[in-house]
Design a binder for these strands. Structure first.
Lengths: 220, 220
DNA sequence: ACCTGAACACCGTTCAAGT
DNA sequence: ACCTGAACACCGTTCAAGT
């Protein structure tokens, strides 16, 4: 039995709440996959009409942003090493690991280059670490952006690779193309063709990140 | 008047061709924007029924892939510097500039991590340059992947930034969030809040790329 | 105040039938 | 062989009406 309207708030008591919608959205994504999240399916999951959702979120984009913010709030804030360079590395790695664990975020990431207010501490950590390493504020922003490009690219590409595994044997697929290269024209590629799939499935995020940070700081 | 069927090929002569469809798709994207490219609109542009398109392409994804391949074929193949490290830099920059000029490719890029057969020369150039710089074949692949992550991320984020400029003042926008940060908790971010938009709109692709490549080769 | 059905303006794709 | 209309199974979103 829903409670009677509070004195100042009148009218029909709510049967659907923002948190209920968010929980249903998370459940739907985890169960059926990110691409199955539609306003209509979400409404069915909540047990309400599609149009009801628009009383609690402005539109689908708003829903996605809120979902990402909620997720970012749960991001671990690990103990930070003393060395400023290591702090930069650690912050970037936490962001990456968090986002990689829920790859649907890529869709939202490409819509807004902000990872949510909860992730701002990571930006702060990188900026602070960079300044401690001798960067000017401008250089610190440049380093942050480079790291973010690298990280976003890694997540986006990795998330897609996982998705289209099924048809990687059909003609025109990536592996297919690599195997078909002309050894005379593209010798290095041809020599690696057989090992390409296994070489590119290794996790080299940390390696590239260290290269980027070290190279940047070295050039100061 | 369409020519009569050739001896071996019989039946109704084609009124729609693959190249015609591709040209129409390019025109539609250039005129109305990438997000307006649908099979139905494309058919209208060609002057045929939507269903006819499926005689010339397998599905929309196939259309996109062909479009990207055609575009990659037009990519300039600039004179390559003698220094192997500079060749790596040049190849990556050409890819980036080419893709940035037609940002819709981002959609296809996240679907398949291959830029099309015409871009394979870039992969080859990076691998060859890396090996000349002292990399093992495996390390060359690692460097290539790092560069590609960084490049793809830059293009994807940059393309999106341009798209949602209109509503960058509405509540919840990126700029809004940066301005609202707590100076006590996030001092570096707060100090840069006013300059954030201008600092992050500068083109720092080359800077990050050089850092990445230099840092990687230094660590060998 | 909150919820709903009906409707609008779209999608990609299939398939049997026409020329 | 090529093209088509009709249809299927969807989308996000608005809006007037109901409780």
């Amino acid at each position: 039995m829903p409670p009677a309207p509070a004195p100042g708030r009148m009218g029909r008591p709510p049967r659907t709440s923002r948190v209920e919608i968010m929980a249903a959205a998370r459940h739907l994504i985890d169960r059926d996959g990110w691409e199955k999240l539609t306003m209509r399916r979400l409404a069915a999951e909540v047990g309400t009409a599609p149009t009801t959702l628009y009383h609690h979120v402005r539109d689908k984009d708003d829903l996605l942003t809120q979902l990402l913010d909620d997720y970012a709030d749960r991001m671990p804030r690990p103990a930070m090493p003393l060395d400023p360079r290591e702090r930069v590395i650690t912050a970037a790695t936490v962001i990456r690991d968090t986002l990689a664990a829920w790859p649907w975020v890529v869709e939202v990431l490409t819509r807004d280059d902000q990872v949510g207010r909860a992730a701002l501490w990571m930006v702060e950590t990188v900026l602070a670490g960079a300044v401690e390493c001798g960067c000017s504020p401008e250089q610190a922003v440049d380093l942050y952006r480079s790291i973010w490009y690298y990280t976003a690219g890694e997540i986006l590409i990795r998330a897609t690779r996982g998705r289209d595994r099924p048809d990687s044997s059909r003609p025109g697929s990536r592996d297919d193309r690599i195997r078909a290269v002309d050894a005379a024209e593209l010798p290095h590629l041809a020599a690696l063709a057989d090992r390409w799939a296994s070489l590119t499935s290794r996790d080299t995020y940390a390696l590239g990140l260290r290269s980027l940070v070290d190279g940047f700081l070295q050039a100061l």
